[in-house]
Computed example of a mutant assay.
Amino acid sequence: MLFRTMLIASAFLTVAPVAAQAQAQAKDGVTYSPAYELCWNKPENSNTYGILRCGEAELAVQDARLNKAYKADMADLADSPEAKASLLKAQRAWIAFRDADCATVRALIGGTAAPIYLQNCHLEHTARRAQALEDLLKP
């Protein structure tokens, strides 16, 4: 119980302005669209509804990025059925991991902040996976 309380307190203490958060995450290999930072910087988005609206829009961007990279990788692997099967298996495993990992976040973070943390979890996982898929077959 103490660990959970410390985790939640730590999560709330690390909430920083979005520009700083986006820069820190970019350093960790997570890249978001410029529109995401612009959305966060609008005064009308400084509440839960605005934060979720910005996140929803960015999640759509990152999901499209992920799908484009996945389709390109699968097309590049057209001559290798074994590699295509492996990528499909990996993608399904990644989806299961993302869902389980974000379910853990949701279970640990309660209250009105839970939707924001859950959305951020999905967003970060999706952006990281999109980047991994984009990098997969680079020469």
Rank of each mutant, 00 (worst) to 15 (best):
I8W: 08
I8T: 10
I8L: 05
A9L: 06
A9S: 04
A11Y: 05
A11T: 02
L13R: 00
A16V: 09
A19N: 03
Q23M: 03
A26Y: 10
D28V: 00
D28G: 05
S33E: 02
S33W: 05
P34R: 13
P34Q: 11
A35L: 03
E37W: 09
E37V: 13
L38P: 00
N41F: 07
S46F: 08
N47R: 06
Y49C: 00
Y49I: 08
G55R: 06
G55N: 08
A60W: 06
V61T: 11
Q62V: 08
D63S: 09
D63H: 10
L66K: 06
L66N: 03
N67L: 02
Y70G: 01
A72R: 08
D73V: 09
D73W: 07
D76L: 14
D76Q: 14
E82T: 15
K84P: 15
A85Y: 12
L87D: 12
K89Y: 06
K89H: 11
A90M: 10
A90Y: 02
Q91Y: 05
I95C: 06
D101P: 14
C102E: 12
C102H: 14
A107C: 12
G110I: 11
G110D: 12
A113V: 10
I116E: 02
H122L: 10
L123E: 06
H125N: 15
T126H: 13
R128Y: 13
R129C: 05
R129W: 06
Q131R: 12
Q131V: 04
L133T: 01
L133K: 02
L133Q: 04
L133H: 03
E134D: 15
E134T: 13
K138P: 09
